[in-house]
Amino acid sequence: MEQPTTAGSWLQGIWNMLSSIGLDPQPIFRQAGIDPDAFRDPHERFQSDQLSRLWNVITDVSGDEAISLAASDQPRPATLDLLGYTMMTAPTMEAALLRFIRYIRVISDATAFSLEPDASGGQWLRLTVAGGELPVPRQRCEFILITILNICRWIASKPIAPLAIEFVHPEPGSTRAHARAFGGPLRFGAERNGLWFSAEDLAAPLPASNPQLAELHERFAVEFIDRLDKARLTPRVRGLIVRMLPDGDPPRAAVADALCMSERTLQRRLQDEGVSYQELVDGTRKALASDYLVKGEMALGQVAFMLGFGDQSAFTRACQRWFNKSPKQVRQGV
């Protein structure tokens, strides 16, 4: 099954963190099955399970469950590679975070962020991490949140204390490391991970704002993502599947023909990327179903049609298989 990936520059940030606290990263990375030479290329990609396995090894070797927050006063902007410059030249912190969300795939397609208003003011930067076969360890999520917060502090050239920080995982035995690193009220066992930024922090102008450089950096980010997509077949196949679904099950032969290759070549190249054609069809349908049902903009029959099901009963059976719920229950959040 295809897994989302993360760039080598992010792993280099983890390596640097371990070095800064006196741990030898090399045996840790090797124990996790990651060749240290592989991520010297900041654009080399690593599967989601490799990151989860790495954090499990780091936690075991260090004996410190809060190891993800060690050396939390160091921003390490190079961890974000080109994305860091794209954020830094934005006019405000809000604009920087919106660019971060837009171009996050430069660093990882295993993480998804959103900026959501809070009824009490300010906005939440929400984090979702897509795992593979392994559960995503809490340390991986904590490291992501503190890294992003510290880069925000760095580009703002001032301390930023979130109005609140939420974690999905239960409260650990000690929260001193969390309080020291994040500097705001902590909430554990939440529905989603996130940082709550004040309206004042979001609206504050950034000292390195530069419209000309910002335009240049955004163009570089767009070009990088385009190259990333063209280098891998899976996103192109998924895009064709989405376009063909309203006409029913997309035939593999039709997709291969659209890509100017034989079915055998299509099958082999997808296999090289760790996914089969049928898994892509089913996974694309599932993702679209979740999106359409949660948004609630289409009737259930229309959703079934858009996903290529001949009738609504087939769509209902698919939802039971995907979500263990009916389409109506998914829509209602039951």
Rank of each mutant, 00 (worst) to 15 (best):
I241N: 00
I104N: 12
N150T: 13
A199Q: 15
D272K: 15
R126D: 05
Q123G: 04
Q320P: 05
H178Y: 12
A179K: 08
I21D: 05
I58D: 00
L134I: 11
V330D: 00
R268S: 13
P250K: 04
A32P: 03
R187W: 08
F29G: 00
Q267F: 10
P211W: 12
L69T: 03
R187D: 09
L300C: 07
R264Y: 10
T128C: 14
S198W: 07
L293Q: 05
G274K: 07
E191G: 10
I155L: 13
D73Y: 06
L115Y: 03
A156G: 07
I146S: 06
N150K: 14
I225Q: 06
K158H: 12
V168E: 10
A177I: 07
N56C: 03
G248V: 06
L145V: 06
P77K: 05
G333P: 02
F315Y: 08
G283P: 01
L115K: 02
E133T: 14
L300D: 06
I21M: 13
P170I: 07
W154I: 06
M298D: 15
Q212P: 13
A32T: 10
D118G: 02
P137D: 05
F305S: 14
T92L: 11
R243N: 12
F100S: 08
P42E: 05
A156K: 07
E191W: 09
D49G: 00
V303C: 04
L51T: 05
P172F: 06
S68E: 07
I107N: 00
M298C: 10
D257P: 06
A203N: 13
K158N: 11
I225Y: 02
R45W: 02
Q3E: 09
E223Q: 14
H169V: 07
D118M: 03
